[in-house]
């Protein structure tokens, strides 16, 4: 869902997007990888992304995957949901790191561990690729009422509280 919201935020800034997840059965909690492309012109390719510019890691448990950073482009960015700061640069190709305890913020603001909107705010701040107002503007396409208000707060806190590291 965060990939889709991100796509909407980029569209709000006049970009073209293509975003999709890849998984088999529809099961909550199963590992999911999602890809988002952004461009100034229409996007024709409909393939998975093998050489990302940025990685958004929602479950910190996945940081232990040996293949996590395979294909990451030099100068790349990482935004991770984690309660502990990064001890060292996790991959030599990284130039930007963003660490946010999105789970805690989500629990505080939304009442459940749904860190997506918080991470989207953190992504905007760490990479500088999106303005906060675009992130906030797109959430109304997906949420309404009290849930929208809570997620707006969660996204805003992600934007303001993310710890950004430049290597």
């Amino acid at each position: 869902m965060v990939a889709r919201m991100m796509a909407s935020a980029f569209v709000a800034e006049g970009k073209f997007v293509a975003s999709f997840p890849m998984y088999g059965f529809e099961r909550r909690g199963a590992p999911v990888v999602a890809f988002t492309r952004v461009d100034d012109k229409p996007i024709m390719e409909k393939t998975q992304i093998y050489f990302p510019d940025c990685m958004l890691v929602i479950d910190p448990g996945l940081m232990k995957l040996p293949t996590l950073f395979t294909g990451l482009k030099p100068g790349g960015a990482l935004v991770v949901n984690s309660k502990t700061p990064l001890k060292s640069k996790p991959n030599e190709n990284l130039k930007i790191g963003g660490v946010i305890n999105a789970t805690q913020i989500a629990v505080e603001e939304i009442g459940r561990d749904i860190p997506n909107t918080c991470l989207l705010g953190a992504f905007a701040a760490a990479t500088g690729w999106l303005e906060l107002k675009s992130v906030l503007a797109c959430l109304g396409d997906y949420l309404s009422g009290d849930m929208l208000q809570r997620n707006l707060k969660s996204a805003e806190r992600g934007y303001k509280e993310v710890e950004v590291i430049k290597w």
């Binding site: 990939a3 889709r4 796509a7 909407s8 569209v11 073209f16 997007v17 293509a18 975003s19 999709f20 997840p21 890849m22 996007i43 409909k46 393939t47």
Partner: peptide, 12 residues
């Protein structure tokens, strides 16, 4: 249309 590659693809 292709499952996954299009069914879940978010585009404008």
């Amino acid at each position: 249309y292709d499952g996954y590659y299009l069914s879940y693809l978010a585009e404008a």
